[in-house]
């Protein structure tokens, strides 16, 4: 359907589910599945407007790691070189999620093998980003889904 953009298709699906499907459902489990689907559609719509959050996350880690590599270049040259290598090793053409995974794995391996100056800072960069994304993710929780489980 070339005449509609992706956001318009998502919005139409959302209206259909909300208007024609949800009111007809009497099964609790089916209802909560549709409510969760509506929330998921909102999230996908947000990604269409704002980009893949994995790309944003990658950029934040990359910036932190570049800064750290620079700051420990004299006192921890091995770690600094390792950080540079981890960034260079990420395949540029890969999807944002794959690049984030590659970088995360390389940096974790580097952290696990490091003890000197900079290691704690590297862990702090990784953990801070995990907590930031976690807090952003809260917007897409479907309360009815959680309520149905407790």
């Amino acid at each position: 359907m070339i005449v509609l953009d992706s956001a318009q298709i998502l919005a139409a699906i959302r209206r259909s589910l909300e208007t024609h499907v949800l009111p007809q459902l009497t099964d609790d489990f089916a209802q909560v599945q549709v409510l969760a689907a509506l929330k998921a559609l909102d999230e996908v719509g947000h990604r269409l407007d704002n980009g893949d959050p994995a790309e944003h996350s990658y950029r934040l880690i990359e910036a932190g790691v570049r800064e750290l590599a620079e700051s420990v270049r004299s006192e921890s040259p091995d770690l600094s070189a390792g950080l540079d290598a981890a960034l260079s090793a990420v395949a540029e053409g890969d999807a944002p999620r794959d690049r984030l995974r590659q970088l995360g794995e390389s940096l974790w391996a580097l952290y696990s093998a490091s003890e000197g100056p900079g290691a704690d800072e590297l862990l702090a960069i990784l953990q801070a980003e995990a907590l930031r994304t976690m807090s952003e993710d809260n917007a897409w929780i479907c309360p009815e889904a959680i309520a149905s489980l407790t």
Binding site: A36, K39, L131, M134, W140, I141, C142, A145, S148
Partner: peptide, 17 residues
């Protein structure tokens, strides 16, 4: 196929804090 799991995963992630 249980979409509630998306919300469960998000709630769980909050435990990391």
């Amino acid at each position: 196929a249980d979409l509630r799991l998306m919300s469960v995963a998000r709630i769980a992630a909050a435990g990391q804090a």
